[in-house]
Design a protein around this nucleic acid. Sequence first.
DNA 1: CATATAATTAGGAACCGTTCCTGATTAAAT
DNA 2: ATTTAATCAGGAACGGTTCCTAATTATATG
Lengths: 149, 149
Amino acid sequence: MMNRESIVKAFREKGLKITPQRIAIIEVLMEKNDDHPGAGAIYREARKKRRSVSLSTVYATLGELSRRGIIKKLQFDQMENRYEGNLEEHVNLICKGCGKIIDYEAPVSLDPAKVARKTGFQMLDSRLEYYGYCRECVNRLKGKGDRTP
Amino acid sequence: MMNRESIVKAFREKGLKITPQRIAIIEVLMEKNDDHPGAGAIYREARKKRRSVSLSTVYATLGELSRRGIIKKLQFDQMENRYEGNLEEHVNLICKGCGKIIDYEAPVSLDPAKVARKTGFQMLDSRLEYYGYCRECVNRLKGKGDRTP
DNA sequence: CATATAATTAGGAACCGTTCCTGATTAAAT
DNA sequence: ATTTAATCAGGAACGGTTCCTAATTATATG
């Protein structure tokens, strides 16, 4: 995750304006990075810092950030999309119970050159996710007679 | 991918009824397995076999099949969800140009025991995807001056 | 084969996170 | 201070998916 100054600098260099709303959103992203927050949570947190932030501004800013590769957008169908600042290749462990997302560092990347040779496919970005239950949810579901949570 | 008979058998065993609509949907899934078709495509193909298939029946049947682990539902946000019969652990190479999904067999699985020991997370199912451009789209985008497609 | 019953079907309404659209506002450069 | 291009807020629109209901149908049983 970049720090606030480097993001502001990147914004200026791209010709993007530094607005109080964007500052608030960026701060939320950094403070809540471990939570992999969704647009809704970012909106609620950003409004605590500055009341005049609209949901469309949050979406616009998150779109700008992810389009420029400053953050990564994790897209889901059943669950709202989430955002993360950790751009290193890693596995996301996603809890089906509470939605928590845990970063797990592990060397599971494919060799792009080998993939291209075998299939002609040019890899750009990856999505490595395992779904299951986090420690807390496993404990919570135990004792309820739920053998296979 | 199971064959038609084994799916029909599994249906009977679960107490699910064998209807012409379901037969049509299952046949489409087997014939178009390599396409990783979405609900819309399955609906259109199934109607060719039997006119009296509704979209809601397609969704209901696909839901039944994936809930029972007979097929796997690949969920997306921007793209319609897709379904696949290949239940072996593999990587899906997903083309941003045309939506094609290529199955790539590679040993990229994590060790569930090690993950559980380090994080307490109980892994259930995985999602290993790489996004990029397939051979055809790379060729198509070349010559358009599009250096980085 | 007739009947009872539980399950499935068709069609449309509802859902909801996300995107799009507009006029009003604001930051940045000169 | 002025100009101009970009951003903001609010709400409408979107679209794949899910939910809902009455009508239909498959299956088991005698």
